[in-house]
């Protein structure tokens, strides 16, 4: 697969909430940016020192103006580099590249009603979904959970746009979303979409399944941030090379740093493009992706190299 890189300039950086910066990107070659579907993300390529970090960020908007994109980035405590780089080094005027938009979190437009749930920075893909539904005149509710008022990005704009369709919850004021009460109020044919912290996603999905919702009606944005871990070595079957994976780098990143070009798309363990066969390993694979089935993970002969790691010292891949 060829990876198209779109050259963009950082047109504006704004603090939109505590620890959240919005970044507005405009194309430098004068062409329009591709239109995108609600819930899409782009990979943002950031040159930090000698490394190029490619992180997925959801597009917050706008849906129709193809002259700019907006992403929002939370300053993460244990950032591998992307989030910290955006908050500490990226400046207005900087020239970077991005991938074309990719959708792994889509609206099902057959739904009779759409129940949108966002936790914290998870609001970004949900924002474009609300905008799309509003434009189509489709019934929806937007439930937005933040710690405080000040930590809720885009809160005022959302209130202005959606009025009583927006429900905001501040955990610091002991206001929490009551999923148990919310789910039974929905008409048959409602689809639920959630993006937020992993624990929140799992909790809501579990409650919805327990309440008898069909799994095809439940949609979650599953981005596994490639978490760090112990370092290990990757041996490549075809070339015989051995490449070291540092504690704060993914296998994919390490292979790229070594000049290899394995296939990838989302870099978040969701799309399946970087699925790689494992010839052998001397430990256990830590599967962090949402692509392989439980059986496949158990079998241990496949790994998604963008997010998953090894608990051990050496893994041999069919590359």
């Amino acid at each position: 697969m060829t990876h198209v890189e779109i050259p963009v300039r950082v047109a504006r950086i704004e603090m939109v909430a505590d620890r959240i910066k919005s970044v507005r990107l405009m194309r430098t070659d004068g062409l329009p940016l591709p239109a995108f579907s609600a819930g899409s993300h782009v990979l943002v390529h950031l040159r930090a020192g000698s490394r190029t970090i490619k992180n997925p960020y959801s597009l917050a908007g706008p849906l129709h103006d193809t002259s700019w994109y907006e992403i929002a980035v939370l300053k993460a405590e244990n950032s591998r580099g992307g989030s910290r780089f955006v908050h500490e080094q990226l400046h207005e005027g900087a020239q970077i590249t991005i991938s074309p938009p990719v959708s792994l979190f889509s609206l099902d437009l057959r739904a009779r009603k759409h129940l949108l749930i966002a936790g914290g920075i998870g609001i970004t893909p949900i924002m474009s979904m609300a905008a799309q539904l509003s434009e189509l005149g489709a019934p929806f509710e937007l439930h937005y959970c933040t710690r405080t008022h000040a930590s809720g990005a885009y809160l005022d704009a959302l209130k202005e746009a959606y009025g009583s369709r927006l429900h905001h919850y501040e955990s610091a004021r002991a206001r929490r979303i009551d999923i148990e009460r919310l789910l039974p109020q929905q008409p048959l044919g409602t689809h639920l979409y959630i993006c937020g912290p992993q624990a929140m996603i799992e909790d809501v999905m579990r409650q919805a399944r327990d309440a008898g919702w069909p799994t095809q009606h439940l949609h979650a944005e599953h981005f596994a941030a490639p978490s760090g871990g112990h370092p290990f070595d990757v041996k490549l079957l075809k070339s015989g090379r051995t490449i070291h994976v540092k504690e704060d780098e993914s296998i994919l990143q390490s292979l790229e740093d070594a000049g290899l070009t394995p296939p990838y798309l989302c870099r978040g363990g969701a799309c399946g493009q970087c699925e790689t066969s494992v010839a052998s390993c001397d430990g256990s694979i830590l599967h962090f992706d949402h692509y392989l089935s439980d059986e496949e993970k158990q079998a241990g002969n496949k790994i998604m190299i963008c997010v998953s790691r090894l608990k051990g010292s050496r893994i041999t891949l069919d590359l």
């Binding site: 697969m1 591709p34 938009p101 990719v102 399946g272």
Partner: peptide, 11 residues
């Protein structure tokens, strides 16, 4: 099908 599901915008 696997190929088509990952078909990219503009490609």
């Amino acid at each position: 099908l696997k190929f088509l599901l990952n078909l990219q915008i503009g490609q």
